[in-house]
Computed example of a mutant assay.
Amino acid sequence: MADTSKLHPATTVTNIKSCIPIVLDYEGSQYNNWATLFKLHCRANLVIDHILPPASPTVPPLATTAENLATKALWERLDDIVRQWIYGTISNDLLNTIIHQEDTAAEA
Protein backbone atom coordinates (compact mmCIF):
# COMPACT_ATOMS: atom_id res chain seq x y z
CA MET A 1 0.00 0.00 0.00
CA ALA A 2 1.18 3.54 -0.73
CA ASP A 3 2.68 5.27 2.28
CA THR A 4 0.52 8.35 2.74
CA SER A 5 1.96 9.14 6.17
CA LYS A 6 4.98 10.96 4.69
CA LEU A 7 4.59 14.56 3.62
CA HIS A 8 5.39 15.20 0.00
CA PRO A 9 7.66 18.27 -0.38
CA ALA A 10 5.15 20.01 -2.68
CA THR A 11 2.52 19.99 0.06
CA THR A 12 4.68 22.15 2.31
CA VAL A 13 4.98 25.15 -0.05
CA THR A 14 2.97 27.96 1.52
CA ASN A 15 3.96 30.98 -0.58
CA ILE A 16 4.71 30.29 -4.23
CA LYS A 17 5.45 33.96 -4.88
CA SER A 18 8.47 33.83 -2.60
CA CYS A 19 9.87 31.04 -4.78
CA ILE A 20 8.73 32.44 -8.14
CA PRO A 21 8.55 36.24 -7.79
CA ILE A 22 7.92 36.81 -11.52
CA VAL A 23 4.33 37.30 -12.72
CA LEU A 24 3.87 35.93 -16.21
CA ASP A 25 1.59 38.02 -18.41
CA TYR A 26 0.46 38.28 -22.02
CA GLU A 27 3.53 40.22 -23.06
CA GLY A 28 5.61 37.19 -22.18
CA SER A 29 8.83 39.18 -21.94
CA GLN A 30 9.63 37.31 -18.72
CA TYR A 31 8.56 33.87 -19.99
CA ASN A 32 12.05 32.31 -20.07
CA ASN A 33 12.84 33.50 -16.55
CA TRP A 34 9.42 32.45 -15.24
CA ALA A 35 9.61 29.02 -16.92
CA THR A 36 13.14 28.40 -15.63
CA LEU A 37 12.19 29.29 -12.05
CA PHE A 38 9.00 27.24 -12.31
CA LYS A 39 10.83 24.14 -13.60
CA LEU A 40 13.50 24.47 -10.91
CA HIS A 41 10.81 24.75 -8.25
CA CYS A 42 8.97 21.71 -9.61
CA ARG A 43 12.18 19.62 -9.75
CA ALA A 44 13.09 20.64 -6.19
CA ASN A 45 9.63 19.62 -5.00
CA LEU A 46 9.53 16.33 -6.94
CA VAL A 47 6.63 17.27 -9.24
CA ILE A 48 8.41 18.02 -12.52
CA ASP A 49 6.54 15.12 -14.15
CA HIS A 50 3.33 17.12 -13.72
CA ILE A 51 4.49 19.76 -16.22
CA LEU A 52 7.01 17.79 -18.28
CA PRO A 53 5.63 14.25 -18.42
CA PRO A 54 8.31 11.55 -18.75
CA ALA A 55 8.32 9.05 -21.61
CA SER A 56 6.45 6.59 -19.41
CA PRO A 57 3.60 8.42 -17.67
CA THR A 58 3.43 8.47 -13.89
CA VAL A 59 -0.35 8.79 -13.84
CA PRO A 60 -1.52 5.56 -12.26
CA PRO A 61 -3.86 3.45 -14.35
CA LEU A 62 -7.48 3.17 -13.39
CA ALA A 63 -7.51 0.46 -10.79
CA THR A 64 -9.58 -0.62 -7.87
CA THR A 65 -6.99 -1.69 -5.34
CA ALA A 66 -6.55 0.50 -2.29
CA GLU A 67 -2.89 1.14 -3.14
CA ASN A 68 -3.70 2.26 -6.68
CA LEU A 69 -6.53 4.46 -5.46
CA ALA A 70 -4.22 6.10 -2.91
CA THR A 71 -1.52 6.59 -5.55
CA LYS A 72 -4.02 8.12 -7.96
CA ALA A 73 -5.39 10.41 -5.23
CA LEU A 74 -1.88 11.62 -4.35
CA TRP A 75 -1.05 12.24 -8.02
CA GLU A 76 -4.26 14.25 -8.47
CA ARG A 77 -3.56 16.27 -5.30
CA LEU A 78 -0.02 17.07 -6.42
CA ASP A 79 -1.27 18.01 -9.88
CA ASP A 80 -3.75 20.41 -8.30
CA ILE A 81 -0.96 21.94 -6.21
CA VAL A 82 1.14 22.51 -9.32
CA ARG A 83 -1.87 24.07 -11.05
CA GLN A 84 -2.26 26.40 -8.05
CA TRP A 85 1.40 27.39 -8.44
CA ILE A 86 0.85 28.16 -12.13
CA TYR A 87 -2.32 30.12 -11.44
CA GLY A 88 -0.65 32.00 -8.56
CA THR A 89 2.26 33.20 -10.70
CA ILE A 90 0.45 34.52 -13.77
CA SER A 91 -1.53 37.68 -14.40
CA ASN A 92 -5.30 37.73 -13.93
CA ASP A 93 -5.83 38.25 -17.66
CA LEU A 94 -3.72 35.21 -18.49
CA LEU A 95 -5.40 33.22 -15.72
CA ASN A 96 -8.84 34.00 -17.13
CA THR A 97 -7.66 32.73 -20.51
CA ILE A 98 -6.21 29.38 -19.40
CA ILE A 99 -8.15 28.32 -16.31
CA HIS A 100 -10.34 25.29 -16.78
CA GLN A 101 -11.65 23.09 -14.00
CA GLU A 102 -10.73 19.77 -15.63
CA ASP A 103 -7.24 20.68 -16.88
CA THR A 104 -4.09 19.07 -15.61
CA ALA A 105 -0.98 21.05 -14.71
CA ALA A 106 0.64 20.01 -17.98
CA GLU A 107 -2.36 21.33 -19.93
CA ALA A 108 -2.32 24.61 -18.03
Rank of each mutant, 00 (worst) to 15 (best):
Leu7Ala: 14
Ile20Tyr: 02
Ser56Trp: 05
Thr71Arg: 15
Asn68Thr: 12
Cys19Glu: 09
Cys19Gln: 12
Thr64Val: 09
Ile99Arg: 11
Pro21Thr: 04
Pro21Arg: 07
Ile51Val: 09
His100Glu: 11
Glu107His: 14
Phe38Gln: 02
Asp3Leu: 12
Leu94Gly: 04
Leu46Thr: 10
Ile20Leu: 10
Thr97Val: 08
Met1Leu: 13
Arg43Cys: 15
Lys6His: 10
Ile16Asp: 01
Pro21Asp: 03
Lys17Trp: 03
Asn33Ser: 15
Leu40Phe: 08
Glu102Asp: 15
Pro57Thr: 14
Leu74Pro: 00
Ser18Met: 08
Asp80Asn: 15
Leu40Arg: 06
Leu40Ala: 13
Thr14Trp: 03
Ala55Phe: 06
Ala105Leu: 02
Trp85Ala: 06
Leu46Met: 13
Thr89Asn: 05
Gln30Asn: 15
Thr14Gln: 10
Val23Glu: 15
Ala106Asp: 08
Phe38Cys: 00
Pro9Lys: 11
Phe38Gly: 00
Gln30Ala: 09
Ala108Met: 08
Thr14Gly: 10
Thr58His: 08
Leu95Ile: 00
Thr58Gly: 08
Thr12His: 06
Ala2Cys: 09
Ala105Asp: 03
Ile81Cys: 01
His41Trp: 05
Lys17His: 03
Thr65Lys: 01
Ala10Thr: 00
Ser18Phe: 09
Thr4Tyr: 13
Leu24Ile: 11
His8Gln: 04
Glu102Tyr: 11
Leu7Pro: 01
Thr36Val: 07
Leu40Met: 12
Arg83Ala: 04
Pro61Phe: 05
Thr36Arg: 14
Leu94Ile: 03
